[in-house]
Computed example of a mutant assay.
Amino acid sequence: MNRCSNPWFIRAVRLQIRNLHELRIPYARPMGISQRNFTLEPLANRELIRIHGAEVVPFLQGLATNDVARIQSSGGPASMYAHFLNKSGRVLYDTIMYRTNNPDTILVECDREASSDFRRHLRTYRVRRRIEVDSVDDEYTSWVMFNFKDGSETVGNPHPDLFVSPDPRLSALGTRVLAPTNMDWAKLTKSFADFGTATPATSDSNYQLLRYKQGVGEGSLELPPGKCFPLEANADYLNGVSFQKGCYVGQELTARVHHSGVIRKRYMPIRLTAPIDAGSSQEVTSVAGAKLGRVFGSAHNHGVALLRIEKVLNGRPELMIDGERCYAERPEWWPEDLPGKRRLAFAE
């Protein structure tokens, strides 16, 4: 068979050509060059999905919690945090969306273990829209830069084949970098040589531990599909939900919870006095044995847990996990005060 007549080969070539155009952004060296130290880590548990089509924005607008139209608007953000919900308003997938130079294409980063289900979920809602949903895992890798001395510092884009964007949730979570898969550690660190000196992640300094210290859950293990609501996962505090946009799947309950203020549980960081099984989900109780929440991830005596706010933070009772003490911490990035109606609801 003539190779050029193979439709799969032709499609692969077309995708590769499109790929080169969509993520290529103008080369710009950072101003005011000074040497810095930072940690650079590949995110092996994250995968990129390409969603392409003339109606990509209205398509995603009807599924995601955030206002997707902003990402393609003039002066809009380069990246955006959003959840995809089921009809009951519970979180199915947590994602970060990325703008490309093609207005008909948006890249979506999701948990690798949930990637197949996520793509199936998107295709279910295409109906008659001409929307393509494909993994670009063999083309791009997600990286993260963090541990800057100045958490608000902006990282410039040093290479035309890279896409660089601050984490849309918290500045403390660093900067996301999308790089071609053929750009390994050595090439990537060389690209950022003018910005500073990169060091690899270690067991006591890595992205997972950084998230746990901030109390940010991510992925299907820490945000199990169908188990929590977006506001319990702090989507409202992490710039992940819009209350001004139109309808989307799960919007009714999300809006009702927001306006009523009845949010009894939220994800927050915990400190452990003894290690627990990594990746395990264990109950957090009071000394008397009352159930107060559940741990969804832990590492190096830090973890992230979904806890009852009023019972855990007011009065700071002794907390226990499997017979060992632990401590809940109020994230610094939470609003200073909560509306009165919410405070009353927590006391319920």
Score class of each variant (00 low, 15 high):
N6R: 10
F9A: 14
A12T: 04
N19S: 10
H21F: 13
G32N: 15
G32F: 07
G32I: 13
T39Y: 05
N45E: 12
E47L: 12
P58K: 08
F59L: 00
T65F: 05
N66G: 04
V68R: 02
A69M: 01
Q72C: 15
S73L: 12
G75K: 02
F84N: 01
T95E: 03
I106L: 06
A114T: 03
L122Y: 12
R123S: 13
R123T: 12
I131N: 06
D134V: 13
D137F: 04
D161T: 13
L170G: 09
R176Y: 10
T181V: 13
N182R: 13
D184Y: 08
D184K: 13
F195P: 02
A201K: 02
T202R: 11
S203Y: 10
Q208V: 06
Q214P: 10
Q214V: 09
E218I: 07
K227C: 08
A233C: 11
V241E: 02
F243R: 06
C247M: 14
Y248T: 11
V249C: 09
V249P: 02
G250E: 05
L253I: 15
T254Y: 03
T254I: 08
S260A: 11
R264W: 03
P269L: 06
R271A: 13
P275D: 07
I276A: 10
S280L: 15
V284G: 04
V284H: 00
A290S: 10
G293E: 00
F296Q: 00
G297P: 00
A305V: 03
L307G: 02
V312S: 08
N314G: 02
G315T: 11
I321K: 08
L338R: 05
R342E: 15
